[in-house]
Structure formats: structure tokens, C-alpha cells
Nucleic acid binder design. Structure first.
Lengths: 204, 204
DNA sequence: GACATTGGGTAGTGCCACTCTCTAGTGTTG
DNA sequence: CAACACTAGAGAGTGGCACTACCCAATGTC
């Protein structure tokens, strides 16, 4: 298929596909001449993945490229791919070295063990710092409840990883890590809405 | 305090504070002359809240203004404030009318009742659509597990709302709705990392 | 042989969150 | 009272980002 068909089937303007090709998000097609290239189903699939990461996934071009690099690198272990995906995701950017103490305490109580420099750990510390700065410091009890729920989800995520090939597992991990985040947030808001309706009926 | 002190104590450039004043994110100070205004502790608190919403909260200026409008409007019910906050939050922007069926099915199984046009419902449908487009359609079982965990969190969130004054409750709802999202996402990633380490030891 | 399309590249666009600069006025210091 | 630093308010400029429009020479199609 040519670029126009690729673009049409993915619902993306041709100029945008060219842009992704230039940025290295989508691999080049097979050149059949100086001004012709052929694209396959795998290009279409990749293009759809890119759109999902950039749109609903909320990634920037640069971060999407880093995430896709983890997908493309064969020989990476599944655990390593998860780490690469986490590193590529937008953590909560903080300037100074954040206060990791409350975050570490949660991990201790949950019995979780993670890398010393885990980006998720830094992100958690930064998020807690933001809450404190906004005058809404969370209690340890609240954090523990959140961690309980998060633990269930993380367990579920990892259990669902297919064991067929490493490549398949890596792709699954990356996609689900990124694209299930909006699902989780939407479900939380729905649960809040339901709980709020029950607790505050008729406008309290 | 003058604008320079306000800016210094919040760790924000003076020009940026002026910008927020112009955009209506921070209320004007009390004018003491044609070129002088006085700001109080409440301005400092508000400025810190704005920074938390824009930075870690990930809101745009326009969305932050809408969220803050909910905080500022007295007489709003707590349930109404939650709805206002949800409407102001960035849903997953989708073009056409998404397929709400799978999303509604989750709600039915959980026994949740939400508004027909709930933005969270649309966001969930859009997120599911993105997953399908990326070739990683989630099973109902996975969604149910996610919903179970989200249900716990939503319950917890609503239970934690202070019952003192409506204004206090509204502020709490808005802040926790927005600023606990990064906490939840970070905890999920930490749980994934721990679970992944246990399931894929030494690079599988 | 006319015409549309392609790969490849450069430059421009629109949006956003600031950031700079200017004016006119004001408090403060010596 | 004069010099000076600071202020409110507002317009214009900046840099980054994700496209998007345009151009060219080459090529495929009718």
C-alpha cells in the first residue's frame, strides 16, 4: 500500500504520516523507486499505536519515541521493558530532590521492593509534595488505601502479560501501561460520582 | 505583602503572578493606590493551589480557571462541585460520538449510577476506543477488576470529604480529585514494578 | 505525453504558557 | 526635595510543540 492509503486507513493526514516518518515514530516503508515506497499492515498497526500513545495516552513525540524504542528493542527482558516504559512516561517534573520519605514509607508498609532510582518513586514523591504545597497533605491511611487498590491493579496488569514471545509481552506491557491509565482515571471518577450521589443526595 | 513578596514566597516569577492575575486564576489584591496593591495569606495559598493544578495536576490555564470557579462559587452542593470539577478536567478528547456500550456495561455490573452525560463516562468510552484502535482491547474481566479497585478509591475519596463547611468540602473535593490522580498513577506503576520483579526475575 | 502522486525536505501555522517591555504613578531614602 | 527602586496594568514578544502547507524532482498511470 502507498502512503495515501496508509494515511486514509489510519484516519491521519498524509502530511502527518510523513512527519511521523521523519520523527522516527513509524519505520520507513520499503522503497520501490526514488519516489515510491510500499507500506504493509505492520505500518498501519504501528501508526494506530502512535496515534493512541500521542492522543489518549497523552505522550509527547519525544516520549512516544522513547516508549516505542523499548517496544522495538528485541532481547529486552519484560521487566526491563516495563522499566523503560516507566522511564519514558511523563513523571511529575520536580526541580529539587524531592522528599522521598513518605513515599518510601508507603512502599515499606506494602512490602514492595522497587529500584532505588525508580521514576515512579520520584513521581510519587513529587505528587505528594504538590499536595502538601496545595495544603492538602494526605494521611498515611489514605495513601495505604490507595496503595492497596493500586497493588491489586499492578498485580492484575502483570498477571495479564502474555507469555508467548518476549516481543509480544513487551508490546503488551507498554500499551497497557500507557493506555490503561486513562481507563483507571475515568473509572475512579465514575466511582466518585456514584459514591458522591449516595452520600450527598439532592445537593448537600 | 506586595507582589514581589507574594511571588518570592510561592517561588514564582513576578511576571507570572501578574499573568495569573490577568487570567483570573488569582484574585486581585486590595488596591492601596494607583500603583500599589496588598496581598494576604489567602492569595499565597491560592497561588500555591494554582501552581499545583497547572504543574502536577496537569491542567491548562482555561481548565484551571473552570476548576477554581467551582471552588469559588459558594452555595454549590458538594455533589455539584464534584460534577463541576469533573467537567473541567481534561477528558480524553474524541471526535465522534464514541461507543458507550462497553463502558455502560461496566457500570451496570458494578451497580453504579451516574449522570447520563457524565464526562467521566465519555472519557471511559474514549479510552476504551483508543485501546481497541491500538489492538489491545481489554476484556470485561480486566475492566471489572479495574472497576473494583477504582470503586474502593472513589468510596475512600468521598468518605474523606470533611463535613464542616460546604466551602471547605468543595475545596477538598476539587483538590483531591485533581491532585490525587498522579498519586494513584505513581502507585500503580510502583505496584507494577514490584509485581513484575516477582514474576520476571532476572530478565525474562 | 498529460497529469496526478510520491518521497523528501523546508518553512510556516496556531496554540499555549509564560516573559519582556513600556508607561505612568508611588513609596522610600538621603 | 531629588534620585531611585518598585508597582499596576497592558501589549507585544518568545520558545516549544505538533502539526500542516508548500515545493521539487522523479515516477507511475491513463
Amino acid at each position: 500500500m502507498q502512503i495515501s492509503e496508509l494515511a486514509r486507513r489510519a484516519g491521519v493526514p498524509v502530511a502527518t504520516v510523513k512527519y511521523y516518518l521523519r520523527e522516527g515514530l513509524v519505520p520507513a516503508g520499503e522503497l520501490t523507486g526514488a519516489t515510491r515506497a510500499r507500506y504493509g499492515e505492520e505500518h498501519l498497526e504501528r501508526l494506530r499505536l502512535v496515534r493512541a500513545l500521542l492522543g489518549p495516552g497523552g505522550l509527547s513525540i519525544a516520549r512516544a519515541r522513547a516508549v516505542l524504542a523499548a517496544v522495538d528493542t528485541p532481547g529486552t527482558s519484560v521487566h526491563g521493558a516495563l522499566g523503560a516504559a516507566h522511564r519514558a512516561l511523563p513523571g511529575v517534573g520536580s526541580e529539587g530532590p524531592a522528599d522521598l520519605e513518605q513515599a518510601r514509607a508507603v512502599l515499606r508498609r506494602q512490602g514492595w521492593r522497587v529500584a532505588e532510582d525508580s521514576p515512579a518513586l520520584v513521581a510519587l514523591a513529587a505528587a505528594l509534595e504538590a499536595l502538601r504545597a496545595a495544603g492538602a497533605a494526605p494521611t498515611d491511611e489514605l495513601l495505604d488505601r490507595y496503595a492497596d487498590a493500586a497493588g491489586r491493579i499492578g498485580e492484575q496488569d502483570v498477571a495479564a502479560v502474555p507469555t508467548g514471545s518476549v516481543a509480544e509481552a513487551v508490546r503488551f506491557v507498554v500499551v497497557s501501561t500507557v493506555l490503561l491509565e486513562p481507563v483507571l482515571l475515568a473509572l475512579r471518577r465514575l466511582a466518585q460520582e456514584d459514591a458522591s450521589r449516595r452520600r450527598f443526595p439532592d445537593g448537600c
